[in-house]
Amino acid sequence: MIGRILSLGRRGCDVLEALGRSGLFLAQSGVGIPSREGWYLWLRQMHFVGVLSLAIVLVSGLFIGMVLALQGYTILVDFGAEQALGQMVSLSLLRELSPVVAALLFAGRAGSALTAEIGLMKATEQLTSMEMIGVDPLRRVVAPRLWAGFVALPLLTVGFSVIGIYGGYLVGVEWLGVFEGSYWGNMQASVDFIEDVGNGMVKSLVFALVVTWIAVFQGYDLVPTSEGISRATTRTVVYSSLAVLGLDFVLTALMFGGFS
């Protein structure tokens, strides 16, 4: 019994220690002073995590918008309320689906790649040699990736929303014959820029920070062997997915739960 409590305590300490380490890690890498060099490194990471994730995010967004319109139509048409299709598609995308699904896709596509890349740099002693040359790898390697993720995911989320709403338009208006004016009109009447678009963006910023943070920390903190890298990559996807879904509930409760 005492042994159980002991091992529980040890695990608790391990978790706390890892949290503390990752917090310090975030603080140290986040303050990297932007220089011309840093700007270029950031640009390269933007290409890596942003532009290269664009295809998967846009295709998923299109399909999710189309499915939403199809599902929504069959339900709304029973109430004779198919005019509200635009409202339904846009609100579900802006408030919920775009931030969450884009963050999950981002964790799978970019997060795991970041972990593997940094882990490989660690395993091949590139980080150590950088330190020996007198360059802080937190600033040189981690900070640009952190900032690129933080900027790229909200942009990807916007893309997801836009193409999802367009997908809803294709199915709802072009295929199922909802009146075009009411699709856009109902949407405009019910979507509030600050409340809906703004809160969705806030969610997306939070997810971006958390997913990128988890990804780079897992990469930086892993055991530098091939097994360690594959484990850390898995951990990145699992932890960031759970963190995104859990935080989504908390943020939704704060934003739309009427606690204000």
Partner: peptide, 16 residues
């Protein structure tokens, strides 16, 4: 594209 998308969400979707 991201900024244009945000503009689209503002003007076309939320009717600002």
């Amino acid at each position: 594209a991201g900024i244009l998308g945000l503009l689209f969400l503002g003007l076309r979707v939320s009717g600002l």
